[in-house]
Simulated scan of single mutants.
Amino acid sequence: MKKIECVIFDLDGTLLDSKECSVKATKAAFTEMGLKVPSEVVIEHYMGIPIEKSFLKMSEQPLDQEIAAELIRIFRAYYQTYEESTLKVFPEIPHILESLNKRKVPCFVVSSKKTAVVKRNLAALDLVDFFEEIIGSDAVSHYKPHPEGINQLVTQYQFDPTETIMVGDAIFDIQMGKAAGVKTIAVTWGSHNAKKLSSEKPDAVAETPQEILDYIYA
């Protein structure tokens, strides 16, 4: 069995199925602002990075600071409206977290969402108690794929990066993990497919949540 000191998870597309919520909220916000609405494919591609960056990339027209801020505000309002009826936990995820907790492997979340929103989403789905700490986009100066979020945890808890695992569904998660020098597991049930994820050369590709444990305890 490998010696693993901790497992760091991405949130959206990894632990939670938030695609419907993100797509609906994004389309509603762009519509309300009178902007051309990005396609579902484009929205899904950028789900792994904070909306402060992704909306600038999604928009076909340049967004000044004021318009971007208002677009983000409207999106967050729609997201909170839709989240209760659309956010779901991916099957098997609670079992994976329970197993890691029973083995006393500390678990963390590094997300592109604000920390308070991550906690709200996890609490609503009875997952928040599985995690030692949550690092949201407001807790770092540099967003994914910059490794700051992982580096914070490794430094604070004195983990060995080579015995730390980053689990995520987007290429940005794998890029972040590699930049931090930790092991990476790409999961295929989120925003990016196996081919796109494999191009980043993760240490493992998991087709099901159980395969996360299979890799850790091989």
Rank of each mutant, 00 (worst) to 15 (best):
T31N: 13
E32L: 15
E32P: 01
M33A: 06
M33P: 02
M33H: 07
G34S: 02
G34Y: 09
L35P: 05
V37T: 09
P38Y: 07
S39M: 07
S39R: 03
S39C: 08
E40K: 04
E40C: 04
E40H: 05
V41H: 12
V41K: 14
V42K: 13
I43W: 14
E44F: 08
H45W: 15
Y46N: 07
I49G: 00
P50H: 00
I51F: 13
I51P: 05
I51K: 11
I51A: 00
E52D: 09
E52Y: 14
E52K: 14
E52C: 07
E52M: 12
K53R: 12
K53P: 06
S54Q: 05
S54E: 05
F55K: 08
L56D: 02
L56I: 13
K57A: 09
K57I: 10
S59N: 01
S59P: 02
E60K: 11
E60A: 02
E60D: 10
Q61S: 09
Q61H: 07
P62N: 00
L63Q: 00
L63R: 01
D64I: 04
Q65W: 08
E66G: 03
E66K: 14
I67P: 03
I67M: 15
A68H: 15
E70H: 10
E70A: 05
L71E: 00
L71V: 09
L71C: 03
I72H: 07
I72V: 11
R73V: 07
I74Q: 06
F75G: 00
R76T: 02
R76C: 03
A77P: 03
A77L: 11
A77I: 13
Y79G: 06
Y79W: 09
Y79L: 08
Q80A: 08
Q80S: 10
T81G: 04
T81N: 10
Y82I: 02
Y82R: 00
Y82M: 02
E83V: 10
E83S: 12
E84S: 08
E84T: 11
E84A: 11
E84Q: 09
S85H: 10
S85Q: 10
S85Y: 12
T86A: 04
L87A: 02
K88R: 15
K88H: 14
V89M: 10
F90I: 10
F90G: 05
P91Q: 06
P91K: 08
I93W: 12
P94H: 08
H95F: 15
H95I: 13
I96G: 03
I96D: 03
I96L: 14
L97H: 05
L97N: 02
E98N: 10
S99E: 09
S99T: 11
S99H: 09
L100N: 00
N101S: 13
N101P: 00
K104I: 11
P106Y: 04
P106K: 03
